[in-house]
Amino acid sequence: MNITISPSGKALVAAVTGDITHAVAGEFEAGLFSALGSAGGLVLDFEGIGLLTSAGLRTLLLLYRESRQAGKKLVLAAVPDSVKDVMSVTGFWEQFITYGTVENAVAAIS
């Protein structure tokens, strides 16, 4: 897994590539939560995402809730259909705010 963070308007965009699994869950959560601290909102660009495992999904949801508790917006963008599908049938998808493209996501939370 790799995370590249870059500013875009008032938001930060974090492009996540590779797999989010139990093995990288801690790194994923800590990295993004600290990034969130300095931004008005965070767009997770999932275009390059690989596998999102059971533990990965839970980490994502925990991060989402932590961000909301901190009064920050966190949205998902460009989620590949295959990942969206897994998130949907396991009941995770409807818990997130999602956008088709990073541009739309940035525009929405800026």
Binding site: L51, T53, S54, L57, V86, V89, T90, G91
Partner: peptide
């Protein structure tokens, strides 16, 4: 019976079904 069985997520899918 899970669309996500190959990912080992049948428990989540089952629970999601019950909730729905």
């Amino acid at each position: 019976y899970a669309a996500t069985g190959s990912m080992g997520m049948q428990a989540d899918e089952f629970k999601s079904m019950v909730r729905a």
